[in-house]
Design a protein around this nucleic acid. Sequence first.
DNA 1: GTCGTAGTCAACCCAGCAGTTGACAAGGAG
DNA 2: CTCCTTGTCAACTGCTGGGTTGACTACGAC
Lengths: 122, 122
Amino acid sequence: MSDQLSQVFAALADPLRRDLVSRLSDGDATVGDLAAPYDVSLQAVSKHLKVLEQAGLVSRSKDAQRRPVHLEAEVFDLMTAWIERYRRQAEARYQRLDAVLAELDADGADLPTPSRTRGAAS
Amino acid sequence: MSDQLSQVFAALADPLRRDLVSRLSDGDATVGDLAAPYDVSLQAVSKHLKVLEQAGLVSRSKDAQRRPVHLEAEVFDLMTAWIERYRRQAEARYQRLDAVLAELDADGADLPTPSRTRGAAS
DNA sequence: GTCGTAGTCAACCCAGCAGTTGACAAGGAG
DNA sequence: CTCCTTGTCAACTGCTGGGTTGACTACGAC
């Protein structure tokens, strides 16, 4: 679980943490402000923030005894890149399959272009 | 944790499961095929697949005693939508801040457009 | 100085998850 | 039919994660 991608996904798997991110996208906030709407303890929220910080989604500065929390949007790119990669790959495969099926249909199902059968053919 | 978004994020928080998704984007495969490269038991991989299935990332059909696994790419859209939403929101906020700062700089820091100060002003 | 505020740290509990092994079901193959 | 393959289900273990409470630090206010 040490890789950042795993940490980011794990961090966002919790609804409360996603809500924190959501509210932080609206502007920086202190721990107390963030904790107020929930009925969990301040310490629990502080822990959640630590998880987000560890994942690189959030940074905390130091202003007197206050700890303003700031959203780091760049990390989203990491996820987006990963997601897009496999979505596109999967979509490309479907399109290829569609093309093959269309070709089969057009040719009359007699010459199934026997060159490449990788994948679904078992 | 019942909402799908949480399940999807949690499912992808595991490197092995991400690897399964990665390999499935290359084409359907059986449980045995998928389990082969790892040094964990077949049952463990089957469990991982169940997690992915529960999250809607994967579907299993039935072919004799074989259970071909198929990647469902649509669920990625759910994540992408969530991510994009907050990334754009955060980026927009930065741009607004930049604009305000630029304006301050241009005006000579005497008329800080005192209408809206929400957010970072403590 | 004392008090109150903002937040972290540490210890502890409970639930869930990843991994294991063992037994079992479902279908071909001989 | 029996055997083998493919895979699931069930029970158990160990670890991690989210929650709590209590004590502590750091800073500003009085």
